[in-house]
Design a protein around this nucleic acid. Structure first.
Lengths: 342, 342
DNA sequence: GCGCTGTCTGTCACCGAAAACATCCCTGTC
DNA sequence: GACAGGGATGTTTTCGGTGACAGACAGCGC
């Protein structure tokens, strides 16, 4: 029986040759065991595995990366990641990547200017990532990517109609239509849309869904208001809107802005849903406890993250998973919506 | 003038020898330039830098890691990272690490059992991280760490009295005392505390602050309720508490649970703050828009992340930054608190 | 003029794995 | 019985850097 510290106690972690020596084979044989090479006799394989266990051997990622030219690292380009949506997605990406033996490195876009995007991409680039997931204002990011020519497979939380092969995600258009239809069916005819920042594809898609549904149902629309996803913005927009009050419902493109809207409506001396109905988007865990509890569109963020990774790994292996069906969002009706009162 | 693609177009990224050849020096000289070695003549250095620019040369991290035994990667052990606090902290850690030339790899603790903690630490361990930041239920994590003997410097979001050298963070005890004192000064004498999960040090510290202040002011306390940070839990706890209603105020150890409490109080036919005053903790961006806007204790999360990284890098360089002053939290008084009505 | 010192640069070995290539041995075939 | 074929394993090279050491050369004191 070998002692665990037999030869490894040179202060360093055991390497492939330490294992080979103890198992009485060449280091290359050990390497073959690690990589599941077919032509290794079972008895040999078992012996090597036993020694690896004893020594608590772990392959050195750096050495491996050096020779394979693969870092087994995925990059995530994110922004606003303290928000519920992005952070849930990142979390599930992380978990899925971990299961696939990849690590994840995240870079944040500090502000939304081009320079900050380039800095973030640069940081990821310096790490020789094998693939990239983009959760950020994509219009600008795509521009920056093509300028830098990052030669890396990537996927993006995206919403285009299926023509784009990098596309993946929840069917935001359908979700927005669900929300809008709900308001129309309640009898609302004067509906505003508080959208997200213009260069976020999610924002654009939700806006599109809103407009499509309004047109389909022959309801006259007004120009959407472009927000920044924050509750503060929702509040200020709400105060402005309530000065005119030419509407009976607002569809907000996320729950935080919806919260701000509700606050503003109340501060203006009105009530939700009696005077104004509000629908949000995302179904953050707090939405059920807003006052009134928020009608919203639920997205399956964890599933989204998992699919991202699956799709990306597929592209990296040059065997892209065909066009996976988009995840269908679900309308959650709570009490922030009701029939118009007039 | 050299062509950019002169010798690099072997399909691979240029390496140190490509640079050396074009600059007419040995590769070792290039290495010295990269590492700012003092004894390089300025003219030589400049020539090398020029070539590096032309080739868009980037040192290969894997090769470097292989020989230096440093990955320039920091690990973050997190849980509940979709919540505002953890995710803000992670974001600022990421940014600070990036500025220092480190990358960050995050591992999530799926559930809170020991096994899941070990899996997460294992994942980080496989990446040869140079340092570790812990944002998680620390009691269990510490146990797992000492079992695994991760030989890595680490810091933890922590709150012990300054004796622990790994400690860093916001003075949670002081924050909790601030919140509690505010309630007592308003005249409340029957105050509950809705605490976080038992093995989170933040939860423990906030609870301690609550009890200390109650004792200091000679107010009789009841046993704190242990929650799980979620709004749902706050709601259910609130429903239970309102059946007895032997209190006039609740100090919740985070804002989400406070939101749930408010919801439950309203659903029980009562009002905040008329019947019950509520104080939260964290000051998430939505807190100002709750109904009623939430009195809470603000923490500077970004600063916290920055300090974590600074402290960790210090420990890694064996020159721990002395005991930095703890960050002092701030009481934000909004309208969820008022004098008791009886 | 000689040796010493210090500055600058080059040569060689090494980190820990995987790939390419080589070797050995066994089996089946004609 | 010679030989092709292939499974199992070993040897050498390679990846792209860094560190240890060596060497060239200039300046300086005696």
């Amino acid at each position: 029986m070998f002692s665990v510290t037999d030869s490894a106690d040179r202060g360093r972690a055991p390497n492939i040759r330490d294992v080979a020596r103890l198992a009485g084979v060449s280091h290359q044989t050990v390497s073959r065991v690690i990589n599941d090479h077919p032509s290794i006799r079972d008895s040999t394989k078992q012996r090597v595995l036993d020694v690896m266990g004893q020594l608590q051997y772990r392959p050195n990622r750096a050495a491996r990366a050096l020779v394979t030219h693969q870092s087994r690292t995925l990059g995530v380009l994110a922004s606003q990641r303290s928000q519920y949506g992005p952070s849930s997605i990142i979390q599930s990406i992380e978990t899925a990547a971990q299961d696939a033996g990849y690590m994840v490195s995240t870079a944040n876009i500090a502000s939304t200017d081009e320079e900050s995007i380039v800095a973030a991409l640069d940081h990821l680039n310096a790490q020789a990532i094998d693939g990239l997931v983009i959760i950020a204002p994509q219009v600008r990011v795509f521009r920056a990517i093509s300028n830098l020519d990052l030669r890396v497979p990537f996927v993006a939380m995206n919403t285009s109609e299926g023509t784009d092969e990098h596309a993946i995600g929840v069917d935001q258009v359908a979700g927005a239509r669900l929300a809008t239809r709900h308001l129309i069916e309640l009898g609302h005819r004067h509906i505003y849309h508080l959208a997200g920042p213009q260069d976020w594809m999610e924002a654009e898609a939700r806006m599109r869904g809103f407009l499509e549904e309004m047109n389909a149902q022959d309801v006259r629309t007004t120009a959407p208001i472009l927000g920044d996803w924050s509750a503060d913005f929702g509040y200020h927009a709400g105060r402005e809107l309530m000065r005119v009050r030419d509407f009976t419902a607002i569809f907000s493109s996320n729950d935080q802005m919806a919260l701000g809207l509700i606050h503003a409506i109340r501060d203006s001396g009105h009530e939700v849903p009696r005077d104004v109905s509000i629908v949000g988007f995302d179904d953050i865990p707090e939405a059920a406890h807003f006052w009134p509890p928020l009608t919203t569109v639920r997205q399956d963020f964890p599933e989204l993250g998992r699919r991202c990774v699956a799709q990306l790994l597929g592209e990296m292996a040059n065997s892209p998973i065909g066009s996976t069906a988009r995840i269908q969002p679900e309308l959650i009706v709570r009490t922030s919506t009701g029939a118009p009162s007039f």
